[in-house]
Design a protein around this nucleic acid. Structure first.
Length: 369
DNA sequence: AAGAGGAACAACCGCGGACGG
DNA sequence: TCCGTCCGCGGTTGTTCCTCT
């Protein structure tokens, strides 16, 4: 529906506030309280739109606002909350008394974000920034210096993965693992990863009891391929090393291991990528327990799961890491959706809880969701 | 001392949810 | 149920301040 612009009336002042305007606004709110922002400017004798008044009050004039530099503790809190909540500045501000969402947002963009980048940490995922390395790894080392047209085509083919850093990481891990495959083989990996990502997102939406829009028309074969890819996709790929370390240290390790095990039994990447000699990154190794390391071997050697396992989409950490907040969609859900993986029965929530719950235990964020 | 460039911060913009008529 | 309004949020822009050459 159409929406009238906030300051449709010409003649309303914009730009920096003068001390006189501030004084008028503060005096009015002190006397009448924060009422209707739309009528406030007129009543207060201000030639501003209500929105501008509200912003000025909430971001600058409110008496409980703490001015000045952020302390080390505040900074640490912001980083930690951001790793969980993402760009939910208002939710972060609620945790920091006296700080406004706008102030925190600005501080993040001008200070913290840059510092994390300098440290080689992705400010979005809070994970080590491997994207550039990953992209270069998609080419043979020599080709990186003297790329052929084929190499460039390969890079272009992997461009969609840029939105999914975890997938990019997995792709490069597989590709630099001594794979004897040709460039053409590498390009075959792309649809597998993307299809798995799509299927996992659908699973996450189901788990969160969100309404999933009907998929675009597709033929049966395409559907089957997607479902199969979902069955094959490792549940591990979306977990950050931080989450992995917390997982390893948690007392409830045994419980989570039980839930993870059946999923690990069904992970099969496409054949022909040299995963038998897979140089599994440390993060992945930390992720899996000893018995799961053997499952990883199994993942690399067992044949692809049949399409009869098409309900086998259990990852609860399937959202793109660029939106970390979504990982908490399931944390407080009481709905359990039955599903099967590897013949065993489990729930999406169990799998979702694999990582989500550990964050919740460390820091209760449910109030902000 | 002056100008350029970058950093920091305040304010604006547009979107979407909540709510009431 | 629909429509209009209010309000809050996140992203972006514009202005001011600071530092370097």
């Amino acid at each position: 529906m159409g929406r009238a612009p906030c300051c449709e009336k010409s003649g309303l002042k914009k730009g920096p506030w003068t001390p006189e305007e501030d004084e008028k606004l503060v005096a009015y709110i002190k006397k009448h309280g924060q009422g209707n922002w739309r009528t406030l400017p007129k009543n207060a004798g201000l030639a501003r739109c209500g929105k501008s008044c509200r912003l000025r009050w909430t971001n600058y004039l409110r008496p409980d606002i703490k001015r000045g530099r952020f302390s080390f503790e505040e900074e640490e809190t912001i980083i930690q909350l951001h790793s969980i909540l993402g760009n939910k500045w208002s939710a972060i501000a609620a945790r920091l008394p006296g700080r406004t969402d706008n102030e925190i947002k600005n501080y993040w963009n001008t200070h913290i974000r840059k510092r994390l980048l300098r440290m080689g940490i992705d400010p979005v995922t809070h994970a080590p920034r491997l994207d550039l390395l990953d992209l270069s790894a998609l080419l043979q080392p020599a080709a990186a210096y003297y790329p052929t047209q084929q190499d460039l085509d390969t890079l272009r083919a992997f461009e969609p993965l840029a939105n999914y850093p975890d997938l990019l990481r997995i792709a490069s891990t597989l590709l630099i693992s001594g794979s004897p495959g040709t460039i053409g083989d590498k390009q075959q990996l792309l649809p597998w990863l993307l299809q798995a990502q799509m299927a996992q997102q659908a699973a996450a939406a189901m788990a969160a009891q969100q309404v999933v829009p009907p998929p675009p028309p597709q033929d049966d074969h395409q559907l089957m391929v997607q479902q199969q890819a979902a069955c094959q996709m490792p549940d591990l790929v979306h977990a950050s090393p931080t989450a992995v370390q917390q997982l390893a240290a948690a007392d409830a390790q045994e419980q989570h291991r039980d839930m993870c095990a059946p999923a690990c039994h069904t992970m099969h990447p496409p054949t022909g990528f040299g995963v038998d000699s897979l140089d599994v990154p440390e993060a992945l190794l930390q992720m899996v327990q000893p018995e799961h390391t053997s499952n990883l071997q199994q993942w690399s050697s067992t044949p692809a799961t049949s399409s009869s396992n098409n309900n086998n989409v259990v990852s609860g950490v399937s959202t793109p890491s660029s939106s970390p907040v979504a990982r908490f969609n399931h944390s407080n859900s009481t709905v359990t959706t039955a599903t099967t993986y590897g013949g065993a029965s489990a729930s999406i929530n169990d799998a979702a809880a694999l990582f989500d719950m550990h964050f919740s235990e460390l820091l209760d964020v449910s109030d902000y969701m």
